[in-house]
Computed example of a mutant assay.
Amino acid sequence: MLKATLTATVLSLTMASFAGAQDYTLRLSHGDNESNPTHLTAVKFQELVDEYTDGRVAVQIFPSNALGTETEVAQALRMGSIEAEILYTGNLVPLAPSAGVLMLPYAYTTTEQAHTAMDELIDPLNERLVPEAGVRALGLLEKGFRVLTTNQPVETLDSLQGLKIRVSPNDIAIKTFQAWGIEPLPMDWAEVFPALQQGVIDGQENPYTTAISSRFYEVQSDITEIHYMMWTGPLLISERVFQSYPEDIQEAVARAGREAVEYGRQVSGELTEEAKAELVERGMTLHGAPQDEEKWAEAAEALWPEFYSQIGGEEWATQAIKIINSSAQ
C-alpha cells in the first residue's frame, strides 16, 4: 500500500512538473485607460487565450504605458523581453516603416472598407514586419476616423484656412494639412488640452472617443467629420516569443488575436456612436463631412508618391494600395 502511494505521489509530481513546463506568461502592454477600446480588446484577448490554450498561457495586461512608452515596448518586443503590445500605428512606423501604408491619407473612407483592407493586408504586412521589427501582427484594431475639432464651423476647405491645427508629430499628417493650405503644429499629446484652452491652437484631429476621454468639449465647439486617416493599431506579439511556442499554442494565440480585434472593432463602433451623442449633449455641433471633401481627398492622394520611401518603398506601397483599392469594390 505504501509503495503504491509513493508511486502515485511521484507520478502526480511528475505530471505537475510536466504541466508546469507547458505554462507561458504573455505580458500585454498598451497606452490607454481601462475604459478605452484598446483595453477592452486586450481583456477579450486575455479571455480567449485562456480558453483556446486551456489555461496554458496566462495573459497579463499592463495599461497606461505601465511597461514603458509605446515605442520603447515595441523595441523590447524585438528582443522578446516583453511579449505583446497594442499600439498606435504611427508609433510603430519608426521601427517598421511598412506599417505606414495604413496611414496613407484618404486610403479608405468608410469603416467597412477599412476592415476589409486591413484583413487583406495583414499577411503580406507580416512578411515585412517580422524582418523590420521582429514583431508579428495578430490583428489590426481601429478606433474610428480622426475627425477635426475646432471653435468654429469648418464646412469647406476654404473655412480651414488661417486656423492653427495640432497634428500628430509624423510627416504624413503634417504634409497632408500643408497640402490643404495651412501650416499645422505638431505637438506632444500632453500639451494639447492646455494649448486649446489658452488659444495657442484652434483645433486638433482625433477620433470621436478621444474628444470624450480628453474632455475637448470643454474647449472646442465644432466637429468636422473628415475621413483622411483612421486610428489604427496592431495587436503585436514578439516574433521571437511566438516562434518559441509549440504549434498548437501559436494557432490558439493567433486565433485569439484575430477574434479579439474583431470584438474591439465592434466595441469601438458602439462607443463612437455613444460619443457622438454625448458630445451633442455637451453642446458641441457635429457638422458631418465637409461639403467639398473630394477636394480634401484629391489634395491628400496626390501626396502618396512622396511617402513611398517612408513606408517600405514603392513596390510595397503599390502592392498595398492595390489591396486597399480592391477592398472598395
Results as ranks from 00 to 15, higher is better:
residue 2 L to W: 05
residue 3 K to Q: 09
residue 5 T to S: 10
residue 9 T to L: 15
residue 9 T to E: 14
residue 11 L to N: 06
residue 12 S to M: 10
residue 15 M to F: 04
residue 16 A to K: 00
residue 20 G to F: 02
residue 21 A to N: 11
residue 21 A to F: 03
residue 22 Q to D: 11
residue 23 D to I: 01
residue 25 T to R: 14
residue 25 T to V: 11
residue 26 L to C: 01
residue 26 L to H: 03
residue 27 R to M: 00
residue 28 L to E: 09
residue 28 L to Y: 06
residue 28 L to H: 03
residue 32 D to G: 12
residue 35 S to Q: 07
residue 42 A to Y: 11
residue 51 E to D: 13
residue 52 Y to E: 13
residue 56 R to K: 13
residue 65 N to G: 02
residue 70 E to I: 03
residue 72 E to V: 04
residue 72 E to Y: 10
residue 72 E to Q: 15
residue 74 A to R: 12
residue 79 M to P: 01
residue 79 M to N: 06
residue 81 S to N: 13
residue 82 I to L: 06
residue 84 A to K: 11
residue 91 N to Y: 10
residue 92 L to P: 10
residue 95 L to P: 15
residue 96 A to Y: 03
residue 100 G to A: 13
residue 111 T to R: 07
residue 116 T to R: 15
residue 117 A to G: 13
residue 119 D to H: 10
residue 132 E to C: 02
residue 134 G to M: 03
residue 135 V to C: 02
residue 136 R to H: 04
residue 136 R to C: 01
residue 140 L to K: 05
residue 141 L to K: 01
residue 141 L to C: 06
residue 142 E to N: 04
residue 143 K to A: 08
residue 145 F to C: 04
residue 147 V to S: 04
residue 151 N to A: 02
residue 160 L to N: 15
residue 160 L to R: 14
residue 161 Q to K: 11
residue 161 Q to S: 12
residue 161 Q to I: 09
residue 162 G to Y: 07
residue 165 I to F: 04
residue 167 V to P: 04
residue 167 V to S: 00
residue 170 N to H: 10
residue 173 A to T: 09
residue 173 A to K: 01
residue 174 I to D: 08
residue 175 K to H: 06
residue 175 K to C: 01
residue 175 K to N: 09
residue 175 K to M: 08
residue 178 Q to M: 13
residue 183 E to G: 01
residue 185 L to Y: 04
residue 187 M to S: 09
residue 188 D to V: 15
residue 188 D to Y: 12
residue 194 P to C: 10
residue 199 G to D: 14
residue 200 V to C: 00
residue 206 N to D: 12
residue 206 N to G: 05
residue 206 N to L: 10
residue 207 P to M: 00
residue 207 P to I: 00
residue 208 Y to G: 02
residue 218 E to F: 12
residue 221 S to K: 00
residue 228 Y to D: 14
residue 237 I to Q: 11
residue 237 I to G: 09
residue 240 R to N: 08
residue 240 R to W: 00
residue 244 S to A: 13
residue 246 P to C: 06
residue 247 E to Q: 13
residue 249 I to G: 09
residue 249 I to C: 03
residue 251 E to D: 15
residue 256 A to F: 03
residue 259 E to F: 12
residue 262 E to C: 03
residue 267 V to E: 12
residue 269 G to I: 14
residue 273 E to P: 13
residue 275 A to D: 15
residue 277 A to M: 05
residue 282 R to A: 05
residue 283 G to Q: 03
residue 284 M to L: 10
residue 284 M to R: 06
residue 292 D to Y: 04
residue 293 E to Q: 10
residue 293 E to C: 01
residue 297 A to R: 11
residue 297 A to T: 08
residue 298 E to P: 08
residue 298 E to N: 05
residue 302 A to R: 09
residue 303 L to W: 07
residue 303 L to Y: 08
residue 305 P to G: 14
residue 305 P to D: 10
residue 309 S to E: 15
residue 309 S to K: 11
residue 312 G to K: 00
residue 313 G to A: 04
residue 314 E to A: 14
residue 316 W to H: 05
residue 316 W to R: 05
residue 317 A to P: 07
residue 318 T to Y: 12
residue 318 T to E: 15
residue 320 A to R: 06
residue 325 N to W: 03
residue 325 N to A: 02
